[in-house]
Simulated scan of single mutants.
Amino acid sequence: MSPLRIASFCSGFGGLEMAVQAVFGGQTVFHADPDPGASKILAHHWPDVPNLGDITALDWCQVAAEHGPVDLAAMGFPCQDLSLAGLGNGLRPGTRSGLWLHCAAGIEALNPRFVVIENVRGLLSAPAHSDLEPCPWCVGDRGDEPVLRALGAVLGDLADLGFDAEWIGLPASHPAVGSCHERWREFILAWRTDADPHDLGRHRGARDDAEAGGRHESADRGDAAAVAERLMFLPTPVASDGDRASLTYSRGNPTLTGAVVNLLPTPLASDGGLNRGSSAGWGLRNTSKTLDAQWVAADGVDYGPAIRRWEAATGRPAPCPTEPGAKGNRRLNPVFSEWMIGAPAGHVTAVPDLSRKDQLRAIGNGVVWRQGAHALRLLHGRAVHNPAHLAAA
């Protein structure tokens, strides 16, 4: 089969595309992201892929005419109005998260066979433009049915456009992913009702992986909860790390900066870098202890097990978590945040002329591609076992 042609909306640093391509292969036809920092990252890694910029300013019919048919549209539209850390304005016209309506317009015009969507857990509870679940006291069906709200609006819009869908929420710390932070995200895989989800599985042999993963889906929440009880996770990298570097807590939750600057032993500016320790990982110069053996914060929280689990999953040792800041203070090292999110080394931090603030914002807004890939395998397994498609297997 020919490679999937992928259209990327609200692209960020390209993490969701990495997840799609890891499972299904494919090539990106265009990006669409107006953020100056994200644009630099996209141009650096994909110089031959056009960035169409602001989706609110696009004539989607013209885009379809100029770039030809696409097989899959991938998008992680802005989460600011859905996230618990935001203002709670929800999925409404005029909000940042209301950009979903422009994404839906793009889907209608491009008419891809498949759609992949990623967003925060607040998608389950934030208010929405749709009358599907219009009020906070009557969301969801009574009984064991889930609350949908903004997610319900997205699924309803997809249904109006002729798509069926499966969705799942899981943390980056899921055992099959192994991240050192929790970062719960919701993922949607949708397909046109006249398309066959098996077609996705014919790329890169993904079908077998997806079906194997799908058999274990029912244990996802239990496994994740068990892991959370055993390990203390580092705070998730967030876009505000670049603006709130001095804060230990944000909205009652510990910040990543607040956690890492209190790790023991604290690296000194005079250390000048890291040496490979003889037995326990990356050691600081001129010290007898290794940093890897001392992932313990000043308050006694031991982050070591989670750090070592992500090192094993990525095959990369954890970088130094802090770097020299103003007045001799230590601050969060963007290279450490990049490692936490699972992006390739230097994918964000080695991009020329990208400020530290833009690096941290791109990382904090990005997708953990390993998490996305696992979610897509599970969702694809569900899709191909949908009764409507069993006959096409």
Rank of each mutant, 00 (worst) to 15 (best):
L378V: 15
P134T: 10
C79H: 00
H174D: 11
A74F: 06
S288I: 02
T287P: 00
G26A: 04
D241C: 03
C135L: 12
R370F: 03
L234N: 02
G304E: 13
E108F: 00
R356M: 11
R276M: 10
G315R: 05
L91S: 01
G37S: 09
N286I: 00
D271K: 03
L42W: 13
I6Q: 02
A350F: 04
L101K: 00
H129N: 10
P321F: 11
P112M: 01
V368I: 08
L170R: 01
A228I: 00
G342E: 02
N262H: 11
H174Y: 05
T255K: 00
P78H: 09
A345V: 12
A206S: 15
R5Y: 07
N89K: 13
E133R: 10
A375K: 08
A345Y: 01
L376V: 09
D164L: 09
A210F: 13
S11Q: 07
G156A: 15
L247D: 12
A38D: 09
H181T: 03
T56R: 14
E186Q: 07
M75T: 12
D81R: 06
V351A: 08
G201T: 05
H31C: 06
G277K: 12
R183K: 14
P78A: 10
G53V: 03
G273C: 08
L91H: 03
A210I: 10
G242M: 14
V49G: 03
P93C: 03
V384M: 08
G25L: 11
R207G: 10
L231Q: 09
D48H: 09
A226L: 08
T95F: 12
G14I: 09
A109Q: 09
K327V: 04
F233V: 00
V139M: 05
R207K: 05
V147W: 03
P69C: 11
D164W: 04
Q80H: 07
A57Q: 13
L354Y: 08
K40M: 15
L132F: 14
N51E: 03
K40D: 14
E145W: 07
L189M: 13
C180Y: 00
A239Q: 07
A128H: 15
F187H: 15
R202V: 07
L161G: 13
A85P: 07
I107G: 01
G372Q: 02
V29E: 14
P324L: 06
P112G: 00
N253C: 00
I363M: 05
A38K: 10
H44E: 13
S8F: 03
R142K: 10
M232C: 06
V384G: 04
N275R: 14
A105E: 06
P235G: 05
F77T: 04
A239R: 14
M1P: 06
H385S: 15
V301H: 02
A64I: 07
A73T: 12
V120N: 04
G122Q: 02
E338Y: 09
R370S: 04
